[in-house]
Design a binder for these strands. Sequence first.
DNA 1: GCAGAAGGCTAACATCGTTAGCCGCAGGCG
DNA 2: CGCCTGCGGCTAACGATGTTAGCCTTCTGC
Lengths: 198, 198
Amino acid sequence: MSDVSYVSAPPVGGRAREIVAAARELLEGEGPEAVSMRRIAERIGIKAPSLYKHFADKSAVESALVAQAMAELAEALEAAEAGSAGSAGSAGSAESAAGGSRLERITALMGAYRAYALAHPDLYRLMSGQPLDRAALPEGLEERAAAPLMRAVGGDHDAARAVWGFGHGMVALELAGRFPPGADLSGAWARGCGAFAG
Amino acid sequence: MSDVSYVSAPPVGGRAREIVAAARELLEGEGPEAVSMRRIAERIGIKAPSLYKHFADKSAVESALVAQAMAELAEALEAAEAGSAGSAGSAGSAESAAGGSRLERITALMGAYRAYALAHPDLYRLMSGQPLDRAALPEGLEERAAAPLMRAVGGDHDAARAVWGFGHGMVALELAGRFPPGADLSGAWARGCGAFAG
DNA sequence: GCAGAAGGCTAACATCGTTAGCCGCAGGCG
DNA sequence: CGCCTGCGGCTAACGATGTTAGCCTTCTGC
């Protein structure tokens, strides 16, 4: 039986790892058009059809990339959450148990979210631009990535979705170059974070 | 001289119009993968290479589509603005000259924005997912589309960008199927509009 | 009446994802 | 020891993509 069976689960095999690593290098180095089965194969010294011994098709490779990116983003958000918990918090106000004002926590999360997206623009677009293949994702990853924001808004689903929408929209528009060139966006980010913290 | 020169400006020629109409039908009827030069040509009874007598390349056709969609979206937003100006406004409060509370106006605009995107998902994705070819856009179209929101927030650039980011993000996530299936998003929209109106 | 442009056409190229089918080699087992 | 199975490579090929080169017809203006 070939690797293909466990492609839907996280691919840990050596060759499968090499393949997603090559795909990522191409994506981040030369953009999405460079990610072709032939280029991936060439990069690891095999021919394109052999890739199908490890992944069912190109979209399965992309799904593995998405899973990788989501795990990294989750880590970044968790780090930001930890950093904002005990920061220079205004003393005395009745914050939630984790410490740090709601504004500080949301601002920290949005900052980390934006930073990750700007550091990996093509990966972020791949991750967020298409319907998520949830079957190809490690169990619980999606919830793990969402959890820090969920905690920051006190478990309010509507608020979490609104903040996520805001953050994703700002990042997507920025990555697509839709804001006026050279525009200073920090004001808009601050306005958004402030609005949702109130 | 061929049509190609005025492709960067709005294509009004009969054949050019037919081409973008065919492209739109394919896009909205069968999705983005169906929009190929051969399929477009077939639909109007010519062969693919002849398209290049009217448009420089495929991206020029897409730019024309984007311009069309932006004009429609601008109209929809203007209509929503007019509708919210004289609605059941709470009497007496010191609103801006146009009438209607800030919350009502933002809610109306976001509602129209979302409605357009949901009615034309592939067109919306095409319009918002890639860097805008501003040279291919009719003069002032971009500003016209942005103006209603700009007025609703009293000319505050940061607020306008934040609200736009929110609206675009919510719509993009919804179109990509990223929210839990069957989730009721009206609460999140209300939360966002409320946050930015306060 | 003729020149030139407008707007068709066919043939072709490189590239894409993907499939079919073949082969060498390693490991388990009789 | 020898066989057999299957993993993981390979070549050849198919259909589709965007795009170019080059040709030909038709219409218009002088």
